[in-house]
Design a binder for these strands. Structure first.
Length: 1036
RNA sequence: GGGCGAUUAGCUCAGUUGGUUAGAGCGUUUGGUUUACACCCAAAAGGUCGGCGGUUCGAACCCGUCAUCGCCCACCA
């Protein structure tokens, strides 16, 4: 120990403890785990953070909760393994690196090529993996760092290959067309999550499509409406509802129902909508009703009639499809299967041609005829102009439309038809549904189960390809022209190669389970690998078993799998959790984890989620620097309740003058902020330029972290008190083995009389708290556990037990026993707190261990000391109730002191009128009234010689008379008592009426009895208050 | 449009299966350097539990409904 004991600082120094104990745990390999047949396994896999950037408070929460569970399990004697790692996060990571490339060097990925880009992403990944791991270590996470994995490393790659190969062999993988969100600027597909909808001013064009050879009574045109006229070049049909009358009537019926049930506010709008829809049924003047027109068109559609697609000048079919809603627009809709997701579905149903009119860079391609080469915007203008010229434009409406934009490039998204690899979900999804439905996998809180089941129940096939460079490349090679015999010959004797014939494209798909194939693997033909990479979730779906070595039957897989619990965020319950369950079942036949705990979301002070794009994310290290890792963890755990998200109000603090600079939406993304008070600029976490980085960083502060920091310091000081006492008076041979294992195993053998009331009280409370804390942590009720610990440590241990034990420590004959209990309680408390505040507890525990040798058994760290087990035999309700009376009395006396402004050094005297039993109980506590309230008791019991001038506090079952002699203000006393009497009157009246009602017949007997007793007590209090007033009045 | 959650003291939140007078921290007020702690101690003030209706002997809690806020999913020719 570097510090001599007599120099225990008054304030806990988190930075020093963090550094020292992190190194100590590391050197002693405490968190390394290996299969051990003598112990039960407990394994947790980290939700691998994306290597896109540094961790924020959301991660801090996630990992704090995991570490709490993991540390507790380890102390409970499980062979505990927490596997760390990071995720390559395909799209997101490639995008940040590309953006950086463009920003710094004005280059695109096409300029530098695939290999160079990937190299840059690896560099990025190395940088952020290092940062992330150091953040996790800084937080105190007890991961087995020797098992750190990356979703793109060889071990994970091997698992990905095996998974893919197995799916391929079982014909669960197929290739199909799919519309992707195409970012024409970045020239990449982006996921649905990376699309944001923005409202923009747009137009709604009504366009005539001429009917080819209209018969008598048939319309000459079909009018369709669109916000995207240029896409008409890719139209392959116009749709009308097959039975518009029924459909329209159904809509009208629904609207009427909604109208009847709607709140007043919405009625006007609904009525309008209903009127408009109903108008479609009626003919006006000499024109047919909308419905009649649609009926005619619907008939024409069934006859296989065509309309002329203007500008392209080619016939396209009029089709009947339910997608065309008779209540919307003109009731007819143009179908552009290659550029609209809904139209694509129609196209598939109706077997329409799908014409892609776009190039990947967002210009029109040769399918657009004379419009080829124009940008979308140019093409739109030209198309509209041409239509107008030909008289085919009916009208234009202005309209606010929601347009999908790429989150990354902020340019509009184009739905773009692409070849895509899919995994069939039917059976796989069903297995994952079953696992949750039959509670093999338990989702906590249970309400999240529904989302999981609903999502999987759609059984939508999983598109697994991404048009990216960063990721696991799809292990498929294309071979054109070869015969199956040639393939058989090329891969003779290889069971790690499988192939299928793609009849649509006349090509062989060759899938390799292990190694990459060279282009001449099939002699006489050049084979080429698929360019696309796999969806990131394809590899993270395997995380629980791939990290343990699957597909190899490693001892780890055998021992640790299925893992214990997965602790994660709610928004990846489907994308990730569901897929882990289905992949786990598919690959190993087993579920990946028994429990899934979904924790709250971290919100900022405005109630918004933290995200990189908003800039409201906060680096946990910034909080650690200011308050310490323990405070960070403590605060987060304290806020983790079952159904409330965590709102964190964080503000900047000027590093020079400590002025609080409120974080606003405006300044939260700025690299530097000028302190409004001292005028000196300081940097924030967003500092990027050299000059900004030179500034001192202003830490983020928040009330919740202060509270937590204060708690750590309180614990530190309570321990300091114990340690100082032990330094002065070394503990003699302990009377009992209370502190040996954290369990007061021998306590019940010790006669109760040996212990003082406060000893029995604190031991009873400790047992209860141990039980409560354990139960709460085991059921992921973190906030409950924290409350138990906080209240016990602060209010019961520090404010009462430590205070009361002081006099006994000064007494040589009583000292040993007091110290024994003190050490025992502290030891158990440290263990219970250790999972949450590992550093401060280790620091204290190690110091304690040096002074009393056997507090930890064999354990050299509290991290591997045994978890306390509540000894329920010491729970003593009677003692706890008695103690409550003492506390109440003490508060009453203190209150009199405080409210009468009696100087702290002035001793006061008091007497208590109570029954004999209470008197017997309280008499021995006299010294505590003296030491804790500087109040001397002059009498206890039924008959007392009472001081004449006293403040009287009526309590349940007793009255306290505090002698104030010359300090008393009789008028004020009377006033106070009269107020009390009024209050009591109210209570008594309400109780009386309650007891005169049906209550006594219907409520359970115990409740009625309780009420009766309570009334009696109130009446007694009332009586004594009246007496007191009478007495005081005689004095005046 | 579908689903989920929230609304309790000035602020941030607890509140077990319905059962005495609804709790905590911060903030506020008062008084304090009482040999662990001013990151502290002692005490006080502060709430018709979002509105309305219902069930019940009894509702912060259960049911209905309205209002406000947030999140997720789907969709918008």
């Amino acid at each position: 120990m570097s510090e001599p004991f007599n120099e225990i600082p008054k304030q806990y120094n988190p930075a020093a403890a963090q550094e020292k104990w992190a190194a100590f745990w590391d050197e002693n390999n405490l968190f390394h785990s290996q299969p051990n047949s003598n112990k039960k396994p407990f394994c947790v896999v980290i939700p691998p953070p994306n290597v896109t950037g540094a961790l924020h408070m959301g991660h801090a929460l996630n990992n704090t909760l995991q570490d709490i569970t993991v540390r507790m399990k380890r102390m409970q004697g499980f062979e505990t393994l927490w596997i760390p790692g990071v995720d390559h996060a395909g799209i997101a990571t490639q995008a940040v690196v590309e953006r950086r490339l463009l920003l710094d060097e004005k280059l695109t990925r096409h300029d530098i090529g695939r290999d160079a880009l990937i190299q840059r992403i690896w560099d990025w990944k190395e940088q952020f993996q290092t940062r992330i791991i150091s953040q996790l270590k800084g937080m105190g996470c007890s991961c087995d760092w020797s098992r750190t994995r990356f979703t793109l490393d060889e071990i994970c790659a091997k698992a990905v290959r095996h998974f893919f190969f197995k799916l391929f062999e079982q014909k669960r993988i197929y290739r199909g067309k799919r519309l992707v969100n195409w970012d024409t600027h970045l020239q990449t597909a982006v996921s649905d999550d990376e699309v944001c909808h923005e409202t923009v001013a747009g137009n709604f064009w009504y366009i005539k499509y001429p009917v080819i050879q209209p018969k008598h009574g048939e319309p000459e045109y079909v009018v369709v409406a669109t916000t995207r006229p240029e896409t008409m070049l890719g139209d392959t049909a116009v749709a009308v509802h097959p039975d518009p009358e029924t459909a329209l009537n159904k809509v009208i019926g629904d609207l009427k129902k909604r109208l009847a049930a709607a709140p007043e506010k919405e009625k006007a709008d609904l009525q309008k909508e209903l009127d408009e829809t109903q108008n479609r049924l009626c003919a006006s003047g000499n024109t047919n009703s909308v419905l009649d027109q649609l009926k005619t068109l619907s008939q024409m559609a069934t006859q296989g009639r065509n309309v002329m697609l203007p500008l392209a000048d080619k016939p396209i079919p009029l089709i009947a499809d339910v997608w065309a809603k008779p209540e919307k627009g003109t009731g007819c809709v143009k179908i552009t299967p290659a550029h609209d997701p809904n139209d694509y579905e129609v196209g598939k149903r109706q077997e329409l041609q799908m014409i892609n009119i776009l190039n990947k860079n967002g210009t029109l391609n040769e399918n657009a005829g004379k419009y080829a080469g124009l940008t979308i915007k140019q093409a739109r203008e030209k198309v509209v102009a041409d239509l107008e010229e030909r008289g085919l434009l009916v009208s234009v409406e202005e309209r606010i439309i929601e347009l999908a934009h790429s989150d990354r490039s902020k340019t509009p998204i184009e739905p773009f038809l692409n070849d895509q690899w899919f995994v069939k979900m039917d059976e796989l999804a069903q297995n994952a549904i079953d696992a949750v439905n039959n509670s093999e996998v338990k989702i906590i809180p249970e309400r999240y189960k529904k989302g999981y089941i609903d999502w999987l129940s759609e059984k939508r096939d999983w598109p697994i390809g991404r048009q990216l460079w960063w990721g696991h490349r799809i292990p498929i090679w294309y071979c054109y022209g070869a015969t199956e015999k040639e393939l058989q010959k090329a891969f003779a004797g290889r069971n790690d190669i499988s192939w299928q014939w793609d009849s649509e494209n006349d090509v062989w798909w060759i899938c390799s389970q292990t190694e990459d194939l060279s282009e001449d693997a099939v002699s006489g033909y050049k084979i080429v690998q698929e360019e696309d990479v796999l969806d990131t979730w394809f590899s993270s779906a395997l995380w629980p078993h791939s990290t343990l070595g699957w597909p190899d039957q490693t001892p780890e897989l055998d021992y640790y799998y299925p893992t214990g619990v997965l602790i994660t965020n709610r928004d990846i319950l489907t994308l990730w959790v569901a897929r882990m369950v289905l992949a786990g079942k598919f690959n190993t036949g087993k579920i990946p984890f028994y429990e899934v705990y979904i924790h709250p979301k971290i919100l900022d002070k405005y109630g918004e989620g933290m995200s990189k794009s908003k800039g409201n994310g906060v680096d946990p290290i910034s909080v650690i620097t200011k308050f310490g890792a323990d405070a960070l963890r403590f605060a987060l755990a304290f806020l983790t309740t079952e159904n409330q998200d965590i709102r964190l109000t964080l503000d900047f603090e000027c590093p020079y003058c400590e002025t609080i600079v409120e974080q606003t939406k405006k300044n939260r993304t700025q690299p530097q902020i000028v302190c409004p008070k001292c005028g000196v600029p300081f940097r924030t976490q967003w500092a990027e330029t050299e000059s900004d980085k030179m500034l001192t960083e202003g830490p983020m502060i928040g009330e919740r972290f202060e509270v937590a920091r204060n708690f750590c310091n309180k614990l530190w000081n309570a321990a300091r008190f114990v340690l100082l006492s032990l330094q002065e008076f070394r503990l003699q041979e302990p009377q009992t083995q209370l502190h040996e294992t954290g369990k007061s195993q021998n306590h019940s053998e010790v006669p109760h009389e040996v212990y003082f009331l406060e000893d029995r009280w604190i031991l009873s409370r400790l047992a209860t708290v141990t039980k409560n804390v354990t139960e709460s942590f085991e059921t992921y009720r973190y906030a409950d556990a924290m409350r138990f610990l906080y209240d016990f440590a602060w209010d019961e241990f520090c404010s009462f037990y430590v205070e009361m034990v002081k006099s006994r420590l000064a007494n040589a004959t009583q000292r040993n026993q007091a110290q024994t209990v003190l050490i025992h309680v502290l030891n158990v408390l440290l263990r219970l707190l250790h999972p949450v505040v590992p550093f401060v507890t280790e620091e204290i525990w190690q110091r304690l261990r040096l002074l009393c040798n056997n507090i930890g058994g064999d354990a050299k760290s509290v991290a591997i000391a045994s978890w306390p087990v509540a000894d329920e035999s010491v729970i003593d309700v009677e003692i706890e109730n008695r103690f409550k009376i003492f506390q109440e009395l003490l508060r009453a006396v203190r209150d009199v002191r405080a409210s009468r402004n009696v100087p702290p050094k002035t001793e006061i005297t008091f007497a208590v009128r109570c029954d004999a039993a209470t008197a017997t109980l309280l008499k021995p506590m006299e010294p505590y009234f003296l030491s804790m309230a500087k109040a001397k008791a002059t009498g206890w019991g039924e008959t007392l010689k009472l001081p004449v001038l006293s403040s009287i506090v009526p309590l349940a079952g007793m009255d306290v008379y505090v002698d104030l002699s010359d300090l008393i203000d009789v008028t004020a006393e009377i006033k106070k008592l009269e107020k009390e009497i009024t209050k009591l009157d109210g209570f008594i009246k309400s109780k009386e009426s309650k007891l005169n009602s049906d209550f006594i017949n219907k409520a359970p007997l115990t409740v009625v009895e309780k009420e009766r007793q309570s009334l009696a007590e109130l009446q007694e209090q009332h009586r004594s208050a009246i007496d007191a007033v009478t007495k005081l009045k005689t004095v005046t």
